[in-house]
Simulated assay, not measured.
Amino acid sequence: MIPASGGLCMFVLVNLKAYPCDPIEVATAAADVSDETGVRVAVAPQAAHLDAVAETGVETWAQHVSPVEHGSHTGSTLAEAAVDAGATGTLLNHSENRLKLADIDGSLDAADRADLETIVCANNPEQIAAAAALGPDAVAVEPPALIGTGTPVSKADPEIVTDAVSAAASVDESVDVLCGAGISTGEDVVSAGELGASGVLLASGVAKADDPRAALEDLVAPLE
């Protein structure tokens, strides 16, 4: 999943959640920073903004796809529709949009059907192992208490990251592990990589920044 780029090989995925930011501004900045540095940077906007974000040229991810096929599923996010709008990957089971295990499995099937790359989020190493067993491309460990705090899990409790990496590897060594919650600086990204993560998942550090481009440049600077 994670291609080599620069020195430390890391993937940076910016989740815009439902923050009142300009998704096009963030996406344009992310596309420019990725092109200039060679670091893989992606943006996950609201479903309604997928096509506009994808048009900037940035790697675009859906925040969620539903465990459904074409049919009578009002209010669902169809995986094929996300692809038609320009998405190439999707998050699943974020702590703000928890799914039952069967629904995670169903959403993974939907994503696979539409050829979307997948990251399944989980709270702790035990859940990471369960998520990895479902066969996603990657998992992301994010303790909910640290989300949006600016305190990265790599500093608050680094064993969560190392244990998550070990838990995923014990189930399926091909499943990458990302580190989320509180990531906001290049130092945080480096720390996550040193603990064994293949990338980072963050939101407010970029989406709430006064200057998203500057925030992104700081995040990837150590990776060039």
Results as ranks from 00 to 15, higher is better:
M10D: 08
M10T: 10
M10K: 09
M10R: 12
M10H: 07
V12G: 02
V12E: 04
V12A: 02
V12K: 03
V12L: 06
V14E: 06
V14S: 06
V14T: 06
V14Q: 00
N15S: 05
N15T: 01
N15D: 04
N15F: 01
L16H: 03
L16M: 04
L16D: 04
L16R: 04
K17D: 11
K17P: 11
K17S: 11
A18Q: 05
A18K: 01
Y19K: 13
Y19N: 13
P20N: 07
P20M: 00
C21G: 10
C21A: 14
D22L: 11
D22A: 14
D22Y: 12
P23Y: 09
I24H: 02
I24M: 02
I24R: 03
E25K: 15
E25M: 15
E25I: 12
V26S: 05
V26E: 05
V26F: 10
A27H: 11
A27W: 13
A27D: 08
T28M: 12
A29E: 11
A30E: 10
D32K: 14
V33P: 09
V33L: 05
V33S: 07
D35S: 15
D35H: 14
E36H: 00
E36A: 15
E36Q: 13
T37K: 02
G38V: 08
V39I: 00
V39M: 00
R40D: 14
V41K: 09
V41W: 05
V41A: 08
A42L: 15
A42H: 15
A42C: 15
A42S: 15
A44C: 12
A44D: 10
P45C: 10
P45K: 06
P45V: 08
P45Y: 01
Q46W: 08
Q46G: 14
Q46H: 10
A47V: 15
A47P: 06
A47C: 10
A48E: 10
A48R: 03
A48T: 08
A48H: 04
H49I: 06
H49G: 09
H49R: 09
L50I: 09
L50Q: 02
L50R: 02
L50D: 03
D51P: 02
D51A: 15
D51I: 04
D51G: 09
D51F: 01
A52I: 04
A52G: 11
A52E: 14
V53Q: 11
A54W: 07
A54C: 06
E55Y: 01
E55L: 11
T56S: 06
T56A: 00
G57K: 11
G57P: 00
G57R: 12
V58E: 10
V58Y: 15
V58P: 12
W61T: 00
A62L: 13
A62N: 13
A62T: 12
Q63I: 07
Q63N: 07
Q63T: 04
H64P: 11
V65A: 05
S66T: 01
S66H: 06
S66W: 03
P67H: 10
